[in-house]
Each structure stands twice: as structure tokens, then as C-alpha cells.
Computed example of a mutant assay.
Amino acid sequence: MKKGFTTIKDIARELKVSPSTVSRALKNHPDISEDTKRAVNELAEKLNYQPNAVALSLKRQRSNTIGVIIPEIVHYFFSSVISGIEDVAYEASFNVIICQSNEMADREKANIKTLLANQVDGILVSVSKATKDFSHLEKIKNSEVPLVFYDRIIPGFKADQVIIDDFDASYRATKHLIDIGKKRIAHFAGPKNLLIGQHRKQGYQKALEDAGLPVEEELVFDADSFEKARLAVLKVLESGIAIDGLFAVNDLTAIGAMQTLQKKGIKIPQEVAVVGFSDGRFSGITDPTLTSVDQHGYEMGTVATQLLLKRIHSKEDYPCETKVLNANLIIRGSSVFSP
């Protein structure tokens, strides 16, 4: 037997049968005897035979593979989204190719080229922070490859999408801080070019307005990472800006802020209460534990994949769908003090 990938012809040669007999035996064809099927499958197992995915995709005009582009795999939210995607894809006998943009537009463009070159049947995308030109995403549509956005979407871009109500979730997170008596609430915000950043800031501002509290731009900081949060907290303390509450655009930002505040001797939540967003794995092990908005990443992954598979299998075009998932606030020790 020659080295390399085993083919149907190799199995046929060993068993002295025709390649078509091997092919039908592997497909459990009724015209093939049970003895022949057993012999073929045993030899295929022994020789580690794998069907040629490229040849199969050309034959049936489908690769049974979907592509996924995530901004950063280190975020618990995105890793839980991937779990949801893979579970649904596996049940549907689809493979998943996962690409990471690492929050870079150029990397995102390269990811899309790779996925299209691999003839994926559909693509799930959460756009990077740096993405401002969307021509590479238009290429997906022009290639007639189904596209579904999840979490981070593009305004006006016609495609299926799965999101949460960021405005409402942020409103409720800020209102919680107001309800426990906080009046000088800072917001560590996300990028202005992303809708999620805009909507979370708007929800924060609306909650302040409804409570009769002033909306002060000096309390809003561009900080959406652990390191940026650390620097923002130092800026707050050095400038003498008084805050008693903090709503962060994501959990890592909230944790970075908490740790820096604590290093400076500020008690949480007695002096400054903190709320994060995404309810990742770290939120339950910080000290104190972190109050956070649960984004339901796993559910987002499952719903997005279901939308994509529906679009892949559909023989007719139909209007784009938007699924809005509910998010709930998980209250913990960073906002409620338990002596």
C-alpha cells in the first residue's frame, strides 16, 4: 500500500473488487452484500480512510462547512458563542472553521478571503472594533454566500443578525446603580463606531435622565479593555473627579477598574459600586464578585447558527431576519454590600 491518503481505489485494489462496489458499500447500498460491506468498512477503518471533502463538495455543490469570525477568543462571551455554534452545526453534520480577527480590520478581511477560498456554505461574523470599511463584507453577499451577523452588527447592512437589546440592558444596569443610591456614575464606554458601544452609552444616559441625574461627559471614558480601564481609573483619581458608581461596557473592563480602585484603597461597593457586561467566567470569582449583564452567549451562538443553516438550506430568497435576545442583570457583591 502506498503512503499518503487512502482512496476508494486503494481499498478496491486490496479487496479485488471495483471502486464502485467500495463506494456503494461505504454508503450502505442495499445491492451490496453484508459480507462485502463488512470487509470494506473494516479495511477502511484499518487504513484510516477519509472521504475526500473537496471532491464531495464539488459533487454535491456544498461543503457542509460554515465559517465563523470572532473578534477575540479570550473573551468568555465569544468562547460561549462558539460552543453554541458548534453544537448546532454538529447536530446538522456541518463542520466549523473558526477565524479570529484579533480586533483588526485587515485580519478580518484576510479571514473572509480564507473562508471564501475554502468554499464555506455560510459565514457568521462579529465585526472587529477597527472595522469601518465594509466592502469586504459586501464581497460575501456578492459571492452569494449566506451571512449572519451576531452581537456586533453593521447599521443598514442587509443580512440576518442576532443581537441583544443593548440599550435596555444598559439602562437596567445603570438603573440598578441608581436604585442603590449612586448619583455620580461613570461609564467606561466601547468604541464609538460600534453599535453596541453606542447603544450601551445611550442606555446609560437615558437611565440618568429618567432619574433626574445630570448626564456629564466628564464621567464617560473611552475604555473597553482591562488596561484601558486601569488607566481611566488613574485618570479619574488624579483629576479629582468624584464617582460612586461605574458601569463598564464589558466584564474585563469592569474587573480592570475594580482591581485598580482596590489597589488605591477604595472599597467596592461601599465607596464605588461596579457593574460589568457579559457575565463571563471571571465575574463569579472576583472579590467581590461582579454584578454583570448576562448576554447569553451560548444561546446567541445557537440562534445565529440556526438562522445561517436555514438560509443555506432555503431554495428561495426571503427577507432578512433579526433575532433580539433578552439579557438579564445578575446582581452580585460589586454592587450590593454583604457584611
Rank of each mutant, 00 (worst) to 15 (best):
A189N: 05
E144A: 08
L177P: 01
Q262D: 06
H75L: 06
M1D: 11
K139Y: 12
R107M: 15
S33G: 05
K113M: 14
P155T: 03
K59R: 15
F282G: 00
Y49K: 06
A207Q: 08
I178M: 00
R200A: 00
S79D: 09
T36M: 12
L309A: 00
E227A: 12
F94M: 09
V74Q: 15
C320D: 11
A327I: 11
A327H: 10
F188D: 02
R62H: 11
L307S: 05
H187R: 01
F188Q: 01
Y298L: 04
N102C: 14
D179M: 02
A189M: 02
Y298R: 08
Y49A: 05
G190L: 01
V236T: 13
S338N: 15
I153A: 01
L329V: 10
Q306W: 03
E91N: 15
I185N: 00
I268L: 07
I163N: 00
V120T: 12
Y90N: 14
V293K: 00
N52E: 09
I330A: 07
D251H: 06
R281F: 12
Y171P: 02
R13V: 11
V40D: 03
K37I: 13
F167G: 00
E216P: 02
A273L: 08
N111W: 13
L237H: 10
G256S: 07
V236E: 02
